[in-house]
Design a protein around this nucleic acid. Structure first.
Lengths: 109, 109
DNA sequence: AACCTTTATCGTAATATTGCAATTAACAAA
DNA sequence: TTTGTTAATTGCAATATTACGATAAAGGTT
């Protein structure tokens, strides 16, 4: 096979996995960190920052956008990407909800 | 191509991406949540919990173990899996170090 | 209009992931 | 030793991801 059996898992499990997957590539981490660093959503110069071709960057930006991590606004003939403020903290909470489930008191080994 | 260009990114970016990747599948989220729920590291009955064949579960467990999220200890002829206490919080911190970089004051859009 | 700049999309090749049947390995129990 | 139980490994098919050249689309500039 190879196809992920998403239907067998809960909505929440799939959502969390999808978010993690979006973060699961160094180029996308690098893109996010660049956006976080410059704060102002400087756009296509991400291509100059990273050692990847323009279509590849564009593809990664699309995935980050689909995951809700970033947003892009048209500005003249270029596009301004930046952190999706509305979702960022929400996604952080979703991720932490998994990590916070751990209780070291009752862990057996 | 298709091969991820890990060499072009920092150690940290690759580490974070690898961790996120390990979390990037609903089956692995489900396995982690089961381990978190039962607290005692009940072992191979994960296979009974999830709608996946034993070799598939075994493979997912291996990936979670490689990522440092869980550990497995031999106990008789079965193996006891549980959350890797030592790494769990550390990994949570690594993930949060990304999310905490966001400063809504200076975000432009 | 013709031209340039910027970004998305298409097409395709290389590689990685997912899933499982079959088998093996390791150990316990009879 | 033989048998049973549990989990890892192997081998392979199906699918997904990654990367990029070529091209298209959209808007600005002259």
């Amino acid at each position: 096979m190879g196809a992920t059996k998403t239907t067998h898992f809960t909505e929440r499990q799939n959502e969390l996995a999808t978010l993690a997957k979006a973060l699961g590539h160094p180029a996308r981490i690098a893109i996010l960190e660049h956006l976080l660093k410059v704060n102002a959503c400087i756009c296509g110069d991400i291509v100059n920052e990273l050692p990847l071709a323009q279509p590849t960057i564009s593809q990664h930006l699309k995935e980050l956008k689909n995951a809700g991590l970033i947003k892009g606004e048209i500005e003249g003939n270029s596009i301004c990407y930046c952190i999706n403020e509305k979702n960022w903290r929400k996604i952080q909470k979703i991720v932490n909800s998994l990590f916070d489930k751990f209780n070291s008191q009752t862990n057996c080994c």
